[in-house]
Design a protein around this nucleic acid. Structure first.
Length: 947
RNA sequence: GUCGGCGUGGCGGAAUAGGCAGACGCUGGAGACUUAAAAUCUCCUCCCCGUAAGGGGGUGAGGGUUCGAGUCCCUCCGCCGACACCA
């Protein structure tokens, strides 16, 4: 009784593939290569989620398809295995994170193998393998050894950094410091985002709205020594090279937005060479300053103590600057504060420093600030304007100081209103829709768009764009300003206070007393790897931002090298580090001489298709591209970009849910009402049979006045709507899981899970099985209808239509429609008796990338003793598609009024003639004048009538 | 607020290049087989009028271009996602 039993055949073929190393990939591609990559998973303790196999099935289909097309496919899998959960587990239980991690990896590996993905498991790697992170540390040394040459726009060895004479004259220490300041990996004492709940410092990117991106815990800012990576040096190239990539415009937009390039000007406002008692720089000094700039020194690369340098994207509004603002952390705060304002300023800055980012960006918040008592002189008109301190100016962007133009900037406008500062319009908006010109000119409303300059000296009358150019050139000429570019992107905070991460290959020198001298040295590549200490006590109390490795055994922590004592760096690298280059290591995972053999790298790179979740659209992809570019500059890789084509799979939500609301007394309340006043209401989960559709939404069957909320939610443990792939495979089979995940809808769409849908595709596979297999036989045998006959013309047409559609759909990654076409094939051939064996064979090949286990089983039954994994993909015979006659619709005034049969190659005259002869059409045309006849061969006929 | 994406039956979704809206699947209904149930098979399933033949309407709303619009253009509404004082 050979019924379709996935449990048996899936195990059988997985064993076959493993024993025969069916999917092993050669060191160098034989023939045309294709590198198909999944974003490797973090092996969490919860195991695989149905979201994982979505992208993995898509890439597996492409991989299997392309192997059959003769491509040499690289398709590896590994583990992004460093991470906080294993460490937190260690704190609770004392189990070493390595143990937990290995256990989780084993579970993930089991689950992925159970779904039948065609990975080359010989290439499996984990970022936590010593032999892997040895090379992560090596890449850190490359970053440490590199400076960015802005002239050549590329990273170069630090030894090639030109040392200015005045630095060289100061001696060896000065040169060392100068180099350290230019490395791509550098240290910085800076306020960091300490998250007490997670026990770590977070990157700026990991803090969203003042709370941690993961878990939503509060974040406070405290100063700490940190490792930073100079990603900002590559901002321009990271933005520009997006043009080389076949990525969706929305992901590119996300990255561009994140990089946030803006252009404008830097301008120096004179504040006097020393503080004046009344805060007012003297007029003579200002004039002297201007003359000096014009005649001699020009615009200094770094601002001196006599100016406040600002960055603006609107140099054309310089004449409208009525005050200035510096960030509370700006180094000039003290110097600019007059004694009578000192208390207020000190209090304000202290408050600002205590505020989390959340408080500082609070939406509804009114703007706050204090006056320093000092003034700066506007270089374009010599007017002195007051300098304020306010936290709406960020120290980390631009120069940390702005010129405020309240008439033409919303934020400045709000602030000026708040503190009664003057508002002077210098841009006339003219007549624009939605702009109250009179209010703008009267300083009663801000206008931030482009217009025509007014009250701007000799620039008056210029259009915004021209003005910007003209005044920037003028300022540049006078040495008072210069063209400037800024980015929202910040340097990458690269150290974490974790145990479970890659140790830095860095030593800190100690003096005779055992105190740090402040000198840092990097290890030599031959001193790698630096492993984590085995013996560690995992301390549950970790409420200070002190790295756990501070408590490592002294034997690990202290190193003597060339007679000097050193202490190891105790920070570790963030989880991103390992995932920044794993795609390179897959190519050559066991190489102990190099991170990747250049010959191998050249042969396989770049990644041709990269599939993963949109949650990595910004950070992972930006970081990986950054590292790749540094490796490119330093000659380790041959391509400027790592990932040519990127596809983001959409999230899979839980099953659709109906929710009604009841008040305390148990009365139903409409969902729309509940949204406005949720107090005291209780959500009640309803069954689909309790609700019905009425007009624009669902209502309670028992009371149609009550509206019901219907939507699918993100899967979560707390909601109890998580679907476990283990259960699906157990109850329906891996092929059904794969097929359903692809049939749900377009790969990139967000879509809800449906158990009934899984059951539906299982029904399809059952039908496929019955189409080929004799269910009534004792042993595996062909269905008696399957005969070694030549197909009829119609059978052949259906077959080749299916080949064509499935092939095109796979090429476009439209897997849902490919499956629909195969369903149509089965619906047709189940009714055919006899069914030509050759049609069955071809169909099995088409099905195999989607449902490889059942396909292999049927292929074997059809008489083949080799895997179909490398069997040539079926070719479509266009001749077989040709039909003798086709049906085309006939319209009258655009309305469908009939159909006619015509020869498929009929020309317009024949079609027109046939249509007019059709009795139904003829009756419509009778007595009317045909004004126009449209005949589209093979498509339709349309008659336009008069009257 | 800014940027990006999306609005099609009871549900998931199809619809080359502007050319028959609703492929395929689910759900629901009717029937066949069966002692019965499951499984399987057949038919129906966008809405309205009509016994039917047929007719009318319909792709978030309104307008436009066109012989013809789900598809192109404009305005608006709604949902989802990202960013959010970046000067």
């Amino acid at each position: 009784m050979p019924r379709y039993n996935p449990a048996t055949i899936e195990r059988k073929w997985q064993k076959y593939w493993e024993e025969n190393r069916t999917f092993a990939t050669p060191r160098l591609p034989a023939g045309e290569k294709l590198y198909v990559l999944d974003m490797f998973p973090y092996p969490s303790g919860d195991g695989l989620h149905v979201g994982h196999p979505e992208g993995y099935t898509a890439t597996d289909i492409v991989s299997r398809y392309q192997r059959m097309r003769g491509k040499c496919v690289m398709h590896p899998m590994g583990w992004d295995a460093f991470g906080l959960p294993a460490e937190q587990h260690a704190k609770r239980t004392g189990t070493h994170p390595r143990i937990t991690t290995e256990r989780n990896i084993a579970n993930f590996r089991r689950q992925l193998k159970m779904i039948g993905f065609s990975y080359d498991w010989q290439r499996e790697l984990a970022t936590t393998d010593l032999e892997y992170f040895r090379w992560t540390q090596f890449i850190f040394l490359v970053l440490y050894d590199t400076w960015f040459d802005p002239g050549e726009e590329r990273g170069r060895p630090i030894a090639e950094l030109p040392i200015p004479d005045e630095v060289a004259a100061e001696g060896e220490d000065a040169v060392r410091r100068y180099r350290d300041e230019h490395r791509l990996a550098y240290q910085l004492e800076a306020p960091v985002n300490w998250c007490p709940a997670l026990g770590t410092v977070l990157a700026n990117e990991e803090v969203v709205g003042g709370v941690s991106e993961r878990g939503g815990h509060p974040v406070v800012r405290i100063p700490m020594r940190q490792w930073m990576l100079r990603i900002t040096a590559y901002a321009d190239r990271l933005e520009r090279d997006l043009d080389l990539l076949d990525w969706s415009e929305s992901i590119k937009a996300l990255q561009r937005n994140w990089i946030g390039r803006s252009t404008g000007a830097e301008v120096d406002f004179f504040i006097g060479s020393r503080p004046a008692p009344d805060g007012m720089p003297s007029q003579e000094e200002f004039e002297q300053f201007v003359v000096e700039r014009i005649q001699g020194r020009g615009f200094p690369s770094r601002p001196g103590a006599d100016v406040l340098r600002v960055y603006t994207t609107r140099p054309d509004t310089l004449f409208g600057a009525t005050y200035m603002v510096i960030a509370p952390e700006h180094p000039f705060v003290q110097r600019l504060t007059l004694p009578e304002h000192a208390d207020a300023v000190r209090v304000y800055c202290e408050q600002a420093s205590r505020k989390s980012d959340l408080d500082r960006t609070d939406l509804a918040k009114e703007k706050t600030g204090v006056f320093t008592g000092s003034y700066a002189v506007n270089p374009v008109n010599g007017k002195a304007i007051p300098i304020w301190v306010a936290d709406y100016v960020l120290i980390s962007y631009g120069t940390g100081a702005i010129m405020a133009v309240p008439a033409h900037d919303t934020r400045d406008f709000e602030f000026a209103r708040q503190y009664g500062l003057p508002i002077v319009a210098v841009v006339d908006p003219g007549d624009q829709e939605g702009v109250d010109r009179r209010a703008v000119l009267a300083g009663q409303a801000p206008f931030t768009g482009d217009g025509t300059a007014i009250a701007s000296g000799r620039f008056t009358g210029l259009a915004t764009a021209e003005f910007k150019k003209a005044i920037t050139e003028d300022l540049e000429h006078k040495g008072l300003g210069r063209f400037a570019v800024n980015y929202k992107l910040r340097d990458w905070l690269f150290s974490r206070q974790h145990f479970w991460g890659e140790p830095f290959p860095v030593l800190h020198e100690l003096d005779d007393q055992g105190n740090p001298t402040g000198r840092t040295v990097a290890l030599r590549p031959d001193e790698l790897p630096v492993d984590l200490p085995e013996e560690m006590a995992f301390d549950a109390s970790h409420d200070r931002p002190e790295p756990p490795l501070e408590k490592a055994p002294a034997s690990w922590l202290y190193v003597t090298r060339d007679g000097r004592r050193y202490k190891r760096e105790t920070n570790t690298m963030p989880q991103w580090a390992g995932s920044c280059w794993y795609y390179l290591r897959f190519l050559d995972p066991h190489n102990d001489k190099a991170l990747v053999d250049p010959e191998v790298e050249k042969a396989w790179m770049p990644v041709d298709l990269y599939v993963g979740g949109a949650e990595h659209a910004v950070l992972h992809l930006l970081y990986a591209r950054f590292w790749h570019k540094v490796l490119y500059d330093r000659g380790y890789v041959s391509t400027p970009e790592p990932f040519m084509k990127l596809v983001n799979q959409g999230m899979i939500l839980g099953e659709m849910e109906f929710t009604g609301y009841q008040d305390a007394a148990g009365n139903w309340v409409s969902a729309s009402e509940a949204k406005r006043h949720p107090e005291g209401l209780r959500p009640v989960k309803l069954d689909a049979s309790d609700v019905e559709k009425r007009e624009e939404g669902f209502v309670l069957k028992a009371d149609p006045n009550i509206r019901i909320e219907s939507r699918a939610y993100k899967m979560s443990k707390s909601r109890g709507n998580v679907v476990n792939p283990d259960h699906i495979v157990r109850d329906y089979g891996a092929d059904s899981l794969r097929l359903y995940e692809m049939f749900m809808g377009p790969l990139e769409a967000v879509k809800p899970w449906s158990m009934e849908g899984v059951n539906g595709v299982r029904g399809f596979l059952d039908r496929v099985w019955r189409m080929v297999v004799d269910q009534h036989a004792e042993q595996m045998a062909l269905n008696p209808a399957v005969q070694p006959l030549a197909p009829s013309a119609e059978q052949n047409r259906v077959l080749h239509k299916t080949i064509k559609a499935v092939t095109e759909d796979i090429e476009q990654m439209a897997f849902n429609t490919a499956i629909a076409r195969m369903m149509e094939f089965v619906n047709f051939f189940l009714k055919q008796d006899p069914r030509p064996k050759s049609c069955m064979e071809t169909f099995v090949l088409l099905l195999s990338p989607f449902a490889p286990h059942i396909a292999e089983e049927l292929w074997q039954l059809l008489g083949h003793d080799q895997t179909l994994a490398y069997h040539p993909w079926p070719a479509c015979d266009e001749d077989a598609l040709r039909e003798e006659t086709i049906e085309i619709p006939v319209q009258i005034n655009g309305k469908l009024r009939g159909r006619i049969q015509v020869p498929s190659d009929a020309d317009p005259e024949v079609i027109d003639h046939t249509a007019r002869e059709n009795p139904r059409i003829a009756s419509y045309l009778e007595g009317k004048t045909v004004v126009k006849t449209i005949v589209v061969p093979r498509r339709l006929v349309n008659y336009v009538l008069k009257g």
